[in-house]
């Protein structure tokens, strides 16, 4: 049982970790572009901010999987 729980925790960690890396890669270019656009026109801050946080959704998917794994799987 303890070994199963350990595997679930590792799975949850991988899900959050890999999606975090994915989001980071996506945000690298979006962030650079956002800063570039804001440098020229501060009025673009709102739009740039929205585009900047869009890749964060990838982490949320990972987080959902991790939460399901940690809280739902042990009770099944």
């Amino acid at each position: 049982m303890a070994a199963d729980l350990g595997m679930i925790m590792i799975g949850a960690g991988i899900a959050v970790g890999l999606t975090g890396l994915g989001a980071g890669l996506a945000e690298k270019d979006v962030g650079a572009a956002a800063v570039g656009a804001i440098t020229e026109d501060v009025g673009l801050f709102g739009k740039a901010m929205v585009l900047m946080v869009l890749p964060e959704t990838i982490v949320i998917f990972g987080l959902v999987i991790a939460i399901l794994g940690v809280f739902v799987l042990p009770n099944m």
């Binding site: 690298k28 270019d29 650079a32 572009a33 956002a34 800063v35 570039g36 440098t39 026109d41």
Partner: peptide
């Protein structure tokens, strides 16, 4: 990759913003 290839995302976004002000 970024250091070698160059900061395309930043520079292109900057010039696109500049172009809209022409």
């Amino acid at each position: 990759r970024k250091g070698k290839k160059g900061n395309y995302a930043y520079t292109v976004a900057r010039v696109k913003a500049k172009k809209s002000q022409l």
